[in-house]
Computed example of a mutant assay.
Amino acid sequence: MRDALDERLAARLAGLRVQQGWSLDDLAARTGVSRSTLSRLERGEISPTASLLGKLCSAYGWTMSRLLAGVESAPPAVVRAQEQAIWHDDASGFTRRVVSPPHAGLRGEMIEAVLEPGADIAYDGPGVPGLEQHVWILGGTLQLTDGGTTHELHAGDCLRFRLWGATRFRNTGTEPVRYAVVMVLP
């Protein structure tokens, strides 16, 4: 019986080759691995050695970590409240709960944030240019500046944008503002 990880790895390797538009002969020429071995590997008939994976990763320009992360076990469907990481910055009055943490097999994540009255947080630029964000105000009023445009957001409002430059999150009100941010990798 084939191991589930080996099955996912076989499918991933076959998918990578197809994405590149390479035949088995093309991949064999790039890696020095025989066509028959590559075919058996992609069908899940054999498990790859570390050396073989190293050759394939070199051909695709990937690290082994990146390749294996894409085939690890599926993320849990439910992230229990007690398992969600919470970080609080006393200096800025910002609290961040990771509601749906990142996972190698998923492109999105979700956080819940609370900004205390007077909190003002500026970010010089994105960690991931082009990151898609959806900011949904759950309570209070948030002043969010993205790319030089300032938006006044109230409970129920949702601002959608791609993150390319500096942003600023401000609570100019007298009550905390609570909001959710959904982030999707480009």
Rank of each mutant, 00 (worst) to 15 (best):
R2S: 15
L5N: 08
D6Q: 11
R8L: 03
R12N: 12
G21T: 09
W22S: 02
L24Q: 09
L27H: 04
A28P: 01
A29V: 03
A29L: 04
T31C: 08
G32P: 02
S36L: 08
S36Y: 02
S36H: 03
S39D: 02
R40V: 00
L41H: 05
E42I: 08
E42V: 00
R43Y: 14
R43S: 14
E45F: 12
E45N: 10
E45R: 01
E45Q: 11
I46V: 15
S47D: 00
K55W: 01
C57G: 06
S58L: 12
S58N: 15
Y60H: 05
G61S: 10
W62R: 14
R66K: 14
R66C: 07
L67M: 11
L67Y: 09
L68E: 09
A69C: 04
A69Q: 12
S73D: 13
A77V: 08
A81Q: 14
A81W: 12
A81S: 13
A81C: 09
Q82L: 05
E83R: 14
E83K: 10
H88Q: 15
D90C: 05
S92W: 12
G93R: 03
F94S: 07
R96Y: 12
R96W: 05
R96P: 00
H103D: 05
H103Q: 02
A104C: 06
G105R: 14
G105C: 06
L106C: 03
G108W: 12
G108D: 12
G108C: 09
E109F: 03
E109Y: 00
M110T: 10
M110Q: 04
M110D: 01
I111F: 09
I111N: 11
E112C: 08
A113Y: 04
E116R: 06
A119V: 07
D120Q: 00
D120W: 05
A122R: 14
Y123I: 12
Y123E: 13
D124G: 07
D124T: 08
D124E: 13
G125E: 07
G125L: 07
G125A: 07
G127S: 13
V128P: 10
V128W: 04
V128H: 01
V128L: 11
P129E: 04
G130Q: 03
Q133I: 00
W136T: 14
I137R: 02
G140E: 04
G140Y: 05
T141L: 00
T141A: 07
T145W: 08
G147Y: 11
T149Q: 15
T150V: 04
H151M: 04
H151Q: 06
A155K: 14
G156Q: 00
D157E: 02
D157Q: 01
C158V: 08
C158L: 01
L159N: 04
L159H: 01
F161S: 00
L163S: 12
G165S: 15
R168P: 02
R170V: 07
N171H: 04
G173L: 05
T174C: 06
T174M: 10
V177D: 01
R178M: 04
V182P: 00
M183F: 07
V184P: 01
